[in-house]
Structure formats: C-alpha cells, structure tokens
Design a protein around this nucleic acid. Structure first.
Length: 302
DNA sequence: AGCCAGGCAAGTG
DNA sequence: CACTTGCATGGC
C-alpha cells in the first residue's frame, strides 16, 4: 500500500474535505464510520472516506482523511495526482471567490464552508448518479449509488476489506429494469438502463461533451435518457471541469425568488444565463455550490 | 395525510 | 414552441 500527505495549507483557500464530499456534488465517496450526512456538529473531524477509481481499466480503492490542514491518503497506487483532480485541489479558491457578487448571503455561504471544492468525478458514475437524483434527497441518492455498487460493481480487495467499484456501463446495461427497481430507483430505473446501453454500445459517450462550448456541451448531454438541462449542468460542473454552470434545482429556484428575482426569465436557458451572470460568470458554479450547501444544510432561514 | 426532494419524458395544443 | 401530466420512493 502506498500512502501520502498533501499539505492543503499551502493551497489557496485550504480544504474542507467533509464539505467537499458531503455537499451533494459527489455520490461516489463513503465514510468508513458510516456517518455520512449526519448533521451533528463536529461529526466530520478526521473521518476516513473512500472511493474507487479505474486506473488503466482496473478498479482501485483510494482512502483519504483530513487531519487539521493535511490530507492523508492510502491507496494501492500513487493517488496524489488523482486526488488533486478529484477534489479540485488546484482550484484557486481565493481568486474564484473574488469573482462572486458582494452579497451578504454569498459571503455567509463562503464563510461557512470555506475550503469546500468542486469535485471532478469520473463521468459515467456521475451520469448515472445524477440521473438518479431527480426528485430525490441527497442521502437517498447516495444510498442508491451504494446499492448499485453492491449489486453490480466488481469487488476489490484492499487492506483486508472488500470494496465494490462503481458498475461498468455494460453491467448496468445488462441489468433488468426490475432488478434496478428493486434497488428503489423507482421511475429512474429505465433511464439508468437505457443510458447505460447508449454508453455500452458506443452509440453515445458523455466524454465527448468535454471541450465543447458550455451550452453546446449541455445540449449534447441531454441525448442521454433521464438527462435534461439541470442534470446535464451537474455533470458538466461535477465531472467535466466546467465551472460556470448553475444547475437550476428547487433550492436554487428559491434562491432566485428570494435574492435574485430579476433573474427569473421563465425558462431554463434564459434564467440560467441571468443567474450565471449575477453570480459572476466564469466561476458561477462554484458560488452556486456554496449557496446550495449552505442553504440546504440550514444555514439561513428565508 | 400531505408535501417535498439537486426533474424528466411523453403527450397535447 | 410552450405547457401539462404522470411518475416511485421515503422522511418529515
């Protein structure tokens, strides 16, 4: 096993690992103490989190925890570069925050979770988990991904334990809709199966959105079943490295009504452009993610 | 009991 | 094009 330490104090803005992996951006990390999403104060602390990653096609386990300003990691390979990408460690939080509007609620959000970073998760698991996210609370979305891993994911041995990788497109394409419904996916079950089929057959590839102009990339992702504008924005923001998308979910709709009413243009594309500009443009997705996590976790009464 | 959750597909006008 | 309806599930 390889280990390492990343000195996050040297990164602009540092790191808040718990906020990064428990804020509803990623559904691909688990806490080893099983206390994911518990609201109790100081529950984050020094908990270990793990995920799996395909390196040259083979699933590998990565484990990480935050001790003070350090990130400690363990893996079967040199994971440091992967962690920089996965956890957004190379983003300049100071510079990003300076692009945000000088509004009180924005400052409160950044102050409350300073160090939270935008993740860059693998794209197929992100596609599937956000298809599952429709009309669903974050804890249950995460539970669905755990179920998918357990039922359809390849098992990986690591440090004396058994872990399950995220399922491949082929394994989800070969699952029956009934099997998926048994995991409480509800009406999302056929969407997951059909989108997995599109990827497995080579008919479509979510990677091909990478590099397109933002709105073209969003349009291209809606070819997948169960992916509309909102889910496409989440895939671009939390996987493909686009930082300007502002996914318009029910929470952000409330933010718009309450704080940016002029941005409500009556349809997704125009409202999205307006709130994107109001939140500073290039890095609007960062500010949106802070607002989402802050408001959803009860940081302010409307 | 009813409402809501990181919405979307399919049908209608 | 815009608008409406149906859709699973579980926690509060």
């Amino acid at each position: 096993m390889e280990r390492g330490t990343i000195d996050a104090a040297s990164l602009p803005g540092g790191i808040d690992l718990q906020a990064t992996v428990e804020s509803g951006q990623s559904y691909l990390w688990d806490r080893e103490d099983g206390r994911m999403y518990e609201q109790t104060a100081a529950s984050g602390g020094d908990a270990w989190y793990w995920t799996t990653l395909r390196v040259d096609g083979d699933p590998q386990v990565v484990r990480v925890r935050q001790i003070d300003t350090d990130l400690e990691w363990e893996a079967t390979f040199d994971a440091e570069g992967h962690l920089h990408r996965l956890l957004g460690l190379d983003d300049d939080l100071q510079a990003i925050r300076e692009t945000a509007p000088p509004d009180a609620v924005v400052d409160e959000a950044y102050d409350s979770y300073w160090g939270m970073r935008i993740v860059r998760d693998p794209v197929f698991p992100t596609l599937i988990s956000f298809i599952c996210s429709a009309q669903m609370r974050v804890g249950r979305i995460h539970g669905m991904q755990q179920s998918l891993r357990r039922e359809f994911g390849e098992s990986v041995e690591f440090d004396g334990g058994t872990y399950h990788a995220f399922p491949t497109p082929e394994s989800l394409a070969n699952a029956s809709e009934a099997d998926l419904r048994d995991l409480s996916l509800g009406y999302r079950a056929p969407y997951v199966k059909r989108s997995a089929e599109l990827v497995a057959s080579g008919e479509a590839d979510p990677e091909s959105a990478r590099g397109l102009d933002y709105e073209d990339a969003r349009d291209s992702l809606t070819q997948f079943v169960g992916v509309g504008d909102k889910v496409a924005d989440c895939i671009l923001l939390f996987s493909l490295g686009y930082l300007q998308p502002v996914p318009l979910d029910t929470w952000i709709q409330t933010v718009i009504e309450e704080f940016y009413p002029d941005c409500d243009r009556g349809n997704y594309a125009d409202t999205s452009r307006a709130i994107r500009e109001a939140l500073g443009g290039e890095y609007a997705g960062y500010t949106q993610t802070y607002l989402f996590h802050y408001l959803r976790s009860g940081g302010r009464e409307f």
